[in-house]
Amino acid sequence: MAEIQIKGVAKSFGAFTALHSVDMTISDREFMVLLGASGCGKTTLLRIIAGLETPTKGEVWIGGRRVDHLPPKERGIAMVFQNYAVFPHLTVFENIAFGLRMQKMPQAEVQRRVHRCAELMHIEQLLKRYSGQLSGGQRQRVAVARALAMEPEVILMDEPLSNLDALLRLEMRSELKGVLAESKTTAIYVTHDQVEAMSLADRISVMNGGHIVQSADPVEVYRNPAARFVAGFIGNPPMNFLPAEKVGSGRYRVAGTDVAGPDTDTRIDYAIRPEDLTLAEPGQGLAATIRVVEPLGAHTLVTCDVDGASFRAVIDSDSRVNPGDRLSLAPMADRVRWFDKETGLSVQ
């Protein structure tokens, strides 16, 4: 049983604050993804959990045990590093066996575990090789096998796929998901890639500026972003925003159309995802002038001008459109979201 609790963890490097009092609970066997742009504090948080960094304030609990004062080796964790950190002076076998040997495990058990993990990661035929003879993808597999061999309660991964090329990344992603689901360990995974986050996570914690902005399951994060930052960060292309002018109780004027919205006195923005727009009869939706057309195969991305603001829509690739065309874009009413202009938080 390894539930992880982060209680008020903060970290500063000199004058720079990397983390502002973060609280988070990750339940046993959960796959948690920490998502954010570089410098948001996600890697710092992961390294604090691993014991590679000491928090300035706060507590870390793993499996009911307070661990923030313990060295990494006493925390029951294993870690996969961004550059794999496969030891160049050891064979693949010895790399996977490294942690087991540190525990002075009997040779037979070492053999058994190394072979089982190598099999799991499909690298049995590489056991005698050195890191220099491996491709990036193979090194990645060794790094994961080495972590799994420890049979840890928690497995920590720091951008493990970011150094692979696109195709390999796709392959490793689904493989990782399967292997980790089977191993029944709690996993924390750091990435800046939202697609990776969406596809792997049981729960995503979106981080920005040393804060956790939203922590929820992938669909929730996508559909109901808790803040404008999340709405802009998740989804490709990101959500569109338009200024809304209050014209009555719960009534707003957006780009020349009248829209129903939340009844609030704060100033708010209107937001809609590009794929939640449909082509409508003239006068039925938002009036848009196309500036750029990007056919993407399955659909076409158009960048338009709506009421002087840049605005994107994903439309069917059969609708032939050209720059300069005028469109009418109708938003799906239940997909419209509102965000506070000042705080950036979602308003309902």
Binding site: P72, K73, M79, F81, N83, A85, F87, G99, M102, R146
Partner: peptide, 22 residues
Amino acid sequence: PFELEEAAFTLGCTRFQAFRKV
């Protein structure tokens, strides 16, 4: 890379062991 030493830490090494073995 320091990452190699950190990997050794997470695999059960003390600072000194990581230096000696990696």
